[in-house]
Amino acid sequence: MENSAEVQRPTEAKPHIEKNKPQKSKKRSSDSPYLFMLPYAALFTLLIILPVVVAVALSFTYYNTVQFPEFVAFKNFIDLFTGDSIFLQNAITNTILYSVIVGPIGYMLAFFLAWMLSQVPHKIRTIYTVIIYSPSVTGPIMMAVVWRILFSGDEKGYLNYWLMEWNIIKEPLQFLQSPDLLVIIMIFIGLWGSMGVGFLAMLAGLLNIDRTMYEAAYIDGIRNRWQEIFYITIPSMKPQMLFGAVMAIIGTFNAADIASTLSGGNPPPQYAGWLIVDHANDFGFIRYEMGYASAVTVVLLVIVILFNRISYKLFGEKD
């Protein structure tokens, strides 16, 4: 009997075979996140990375969309910063002025309006959210129709009509043909339409803050709403604040055709309100100098990256 028991001992190796099965399933489960990420990675590469790589490559060439691109090294960038006075004096200056004013003010205004809406009941909040968000969607249509009528340079323009009725002016002002006034109107319209996706993200972040944190903060010594905002609200919604900052930067630096649409001419009078994207569109789609236009977009990309780094320093998590 003892010999037969010893002979049957090799059959105890079965549990060793069964231990290998969970390892296969574990390996398969570790690969599943990459399969879910594959569609996004493919679309991101196709729609974002590939166009950026192509633009950088074309910026070192002369390409007129007909002939094969001719490599010219840094000639486009040298011409851009040494011989293109419109780019240096108008495009860059107007873009930075527009972005520095519309970006931060629109960003703070978006947070302030989102914070106010978070204090009101749900039904009223929904109505006001739609009203505030709608200009960012209907901006181009409203700009082409409503704003041009409002700032029209004849007596039929609403603003000129009111100013003349109140005896403030004696003759109509050419709002959309004056370079100084056109830039001011462009900045005003930019602020009017700045409540976009960043505003919605901030509102969502405000509504998802745990209310018990405020109760605990008041027990610990917070005395007013300003301390509540700076010590509880903003630190609790840093991801939404960062998203809003990035969207504000991208939206302001990618703005285009505002001055041309308002003034009815391309380019606008004395290139007032002429932005970097306008300059790129002019060389790319009107003059068909795609290499030079690509150099303009590469410069814009570098500027946007620098400003995005600043926003990450302010609202990004150290972890």
Rank of each mutant, 00 (worst) to 15 (best):
E2S: 13
A5L: 12
T11D: 09
K14W: 15
K14D: 12
N20R: 13
P22H: 02
Q23E: 12
K24R: 14
S25L: 14
S25I: 13
K27L: 13
R28G: 07
S29I: 14
P33N: 01
Y34S: 05
P39E: 00
T45S: 15
I48T: 12
I49E: 03
L58K: 03
S59C: 05
F60H: 10
Y63H: 04
F68P: 09
E70I: 08
F74Y: 13
K75M: 08
N76C: 00
N76P: 03
F81E: 06
T82L: 10
D84S: 06
A91Q: 12
I92H: 08
T93W: 11
I96K: 01
V100K: 02
I101F: 11
I105Q: 08
G106D: 01
Y107K: 12
M116N: 11
L117K: 04
S118R: 06
P121K: 12
K123I: 03
K123N: 03
I124M: 08
Y128C: 00
P135W: 07
G139I: 11
I141Q: 03
V146T: 12
I149F: 15
F151Q: 07
F151D: 02
S152Q: 10
S152D: 15
G153I: 03
K156S: 07
G157F: 00
G157V: 00
Y161P: 02
W162S: 15
I168F: 09
L173R: 15
Q174C: 06
L176T: 06
Q177K: 15
I184H: 07
I184P: 00
I184T: 07
I187S: 06
F188H: 10
I189N: 04
G190N: 05
W192D: 02
M195H: 08
M195I: 07
V197A: 15
F199K: 07
L200I: 09
A204T: 11
N208W: 02
I209F: 01
R211S: 06
T212Y: 03
M213F: 01
M213T: 08
D220K: 00
I222L: 00
R223G: 04
R223K: 15
N224L: 01
E228D: 10
E228V: 02
T233H: 01
S236L: 00
S236N: 03
K238E: 00
Q240F: 11
A248T: 09
T252D: 05
D257E: 14
A259F: 01
T261H: 05
L262P: 11
G265T: 13
G265C: 09
P267S: 09
P267V: 05
P268M: 05
W274K: 08
W274N: 12
N281L: 15
N281M: 12
F285D: 06
I286H: 13
R287H: 10
Y288V: 04
G291Y: 13
A295S: 05
V296Q: 04
T297Y: 09
T297Q: 13
L300Q: 13
L301T: 15
V302Y: 15
L306V: 14
N308Q: 07
K313W: 11
E317H: 10
E317C: 08
K318V: 06
